[in-house]
Design a protein around this nucleic acid. Sequence first.
DNA 1: ATGGCATTATGCTAATGA
Length: 257
Amino acid sequence: MRIGTWNVNSLRVRLPHLLSFLATDPVDVLGLQEIKCLDEQVPREALEAAGWQVVSNGQKTYNGVAILSRLPLSDISRDIPGFEDEQKRVMAATVDDVRVICVYVVNGQSVGSEKYAYKLRWLTALRDYVRQEMLAHPRLAVVGDYNIAPAPEDTHDPAVWEGNILCSEPERGHFRDLLGLGLADCLAVQRPAAGTRFTWWDYRQAAFRRDMGLRIDHVLVTPALASELRECHIHLEPRRLEKPSDHAPVVAAFGPG
DNA sequence: ATGGCATTATGCTAATGA
């Protein structure tokens, strides 16, 4: 099975990009973030016509997540149970024998801000939720836009980024906590020999052309899946199109070819 | 030092992102 993640930065605007990407058969299950629309505004017909099951946890203007799958999706869950949150950032579904949690982690704006405090609280709730889900689902993938660059080499310029938002020690501590639960970071484990190491590039300053990016989108998996990990790939094609998302899709492949 | 780009909305300026 191939499991992916992509922050599309508006599902309605990016639908043509998404459909052309899916048409290349890159993935079996795909978590989407920042769909920026309500559930009733999800372009369901177009995606279903292309052969995809669609479930979503939408929100107007901001945030919102969805999961696409070729195979049937079951046990649909939305948000982090027991965590009071008006923002739609989490959903989960089971595909075959794999539990997939799709997350759009809080950005945090700047270290020390109110939004930063919310980000750290939110990450604590996520960790507790993932720990619980792991008990019920030995084959679990937590995919999404984590808004955390785990290490200095996950930024194009540590001198600029170290200690700042996405790269502060408390944020990285939360990421390490997730790995501490037993999850494996597929891109870190199976880093492609060639090509970029980043998954996001600013729209400004020709950042993509200059490969001035960050690695903030991640596929984390339990040991049962990690032992079957074959490869993990950053798909640059959609980022090269006109009016792209600022994020690239990341896809990890498991099991026999 | 700032903004540089993109998306959305009781829209034409402001909020948010990373």
